[in-house]
């Protein structure tokens, strides 16, 4: 692929018109006094996003991993959830729509072969962080009065500067997409398989497990036998040219030849193995920093939210009287 420009990726007019329509849709969907128009705005914004995605589809090359139905479903769910989150007048519903966005993005992570992160996202974000947010929202939001359940706090029912904010946001979106689409063509098309060839050389245990299970399954080894180990290095005693491996049983040691189809040449590391090796092997210092940040956050949150519980004098006296009455019984 030659160095692509914006024009070969998507028609610029289409992109900018879609950004303008999207901005209009977001402005219409914003909470305001009077009629609620979230549906019209949502449809407008969704059609704008659909225009860009369709425009990108027309210029895609032949690619087995081109976005399929699942990508479009998850993308629409994620963007729709995000739009509804920033426009819904009730804070609890906003948080719930954000959970929808999180789950849809974890679906996108799955499409990108990041299985571990997809489930970590659901567990950490949707399971822990968002529930904390929901808890604080429910703690700090006054219940509506009896009779009028639609009564909302004034600051939730009215957006601040929706036109200016939407204009700024969508100008940013237009600039971001312009720069990104211009840049992706210059990326190396087939970069090296960094960190993948080396993974299994660091996972001899995985190779050993594979050999052991396949040899035992075929009856070439007794279940009591294991692989002999070199006295000095602790590695397996193996002759890879002839595919011979030394077995240590009870007392006797022998070599067996591993059949070719059992030779674990096509073992691949999984996502979790690769991620773990990358995390601990190439970025060990960041784990320490993350630990320090979490510790600081914990201390800071404790100090900030601490409060002397001072019961009023009257309430204290009332409680003492109640206790005294209960004590006399």
């Amino acid at each position: 692929m030659d160095a692509s420009t914006l024009e070969t990726t998507i028609h610029p007019l289409l992109l900018y018109v879609a950004c303008a329509i999207g901005a209009l849709g977001v402005v219409i969907a914003m909470p305001r006094k009077g009629v609620s128009s979230a549906i019209i705005g949502g449809v407008l914004a969704a059609s704008a996003a659909g225009m860009v995605i369709l425009g990108l589809l027309f210029t895609r090359g032949t690619d087995d991993h081109a976005p399929n139905l699942f990508f479009h479903a998850f993308a629409i769910l994620a963007l729709g959830g995000a739009l509804r989150m920033i426009t819904h007048p009730k804070p609890v519903y906003s948080a719930l729509y954000f959970i929808l966005t999180i789950i849809a993005s974890s679906g996108l992570y799955l499409l990108l072969s990041a299985e571990f992160m997809a489930f970590a996202l659901i567990i950490i974000y949707a399971g822990a962080i968002l529930i904390t947010y929901l808890f604080v929202i429910m703690l700090a939001t006054q219940a509506p009065d009896e009779g009028d359940e639609d009564a909302l706090s004034g600051y939730d029912a009215l957006a601040r500067e929706p036109v200016a904010a939407a204009a700024a946001g969508f100008v940013l979106l237009a600039l971001l997409t312009t720069m990104m689409f211009r840049g992706t063509g210059a990326l190396p098309v087939h970069p090296g398989l960094n960190g993948s060839d080396a993974i299994l050389s660091q996972l001899p245990g995985k190779v050993e497990d594979s050999l052991l299970s396949s040899l035992r399954k075929e009856g070439l080894m007794e279940s009591a036998e294991g692989f002999a180990r070199d006295g000095e290095t602790g590695r397996l005693v193996i002759d890879s040219a002839q595919r011979r491996i030394q077995i240590a049983g009870d007392g006797e040691e022998r070599f067996i030849v591993v059949p070719e189809e059992m030779w674990p040449e096509y073992l691949v590391g999984t996502n979790v193995e690769g991620l773990g090796l990358n995390l601990l092997g190439e970025h060990p210092m960041t784990i320490e920093i993350a630990g320090i940040i979490l510790l600081m956050a914990m201390l800071g949150a404790t100090v900030l939210a601490r409060k002397q519980v001072d019961i009023e004098e009257e309430a204290k006296a009332r409680q003492q009287r109640r206790l005294a009455v209960e004590g006399q019984r």
């Binding site: 895609r60 994620a78 963007l79 996108l108 601040r160 500067e161 946001g169 997409t177 992706t184």
Partner: peptide
């Protein structure tokens, strides 16, 4: 392919813009 990458980048950029708008309006 880079064309596939573009689609994910667009979704990401749109999500970021929506978050920015939300931060300014709420």
């Amino acid at each position: 392919a880079a064309s596939t990458l573009n689609q994910y980048l667009f979704v990401s950029a749109a999500m970021f813009a929506l978050g920015l708008i939300g931060f300014m309006t709420r």
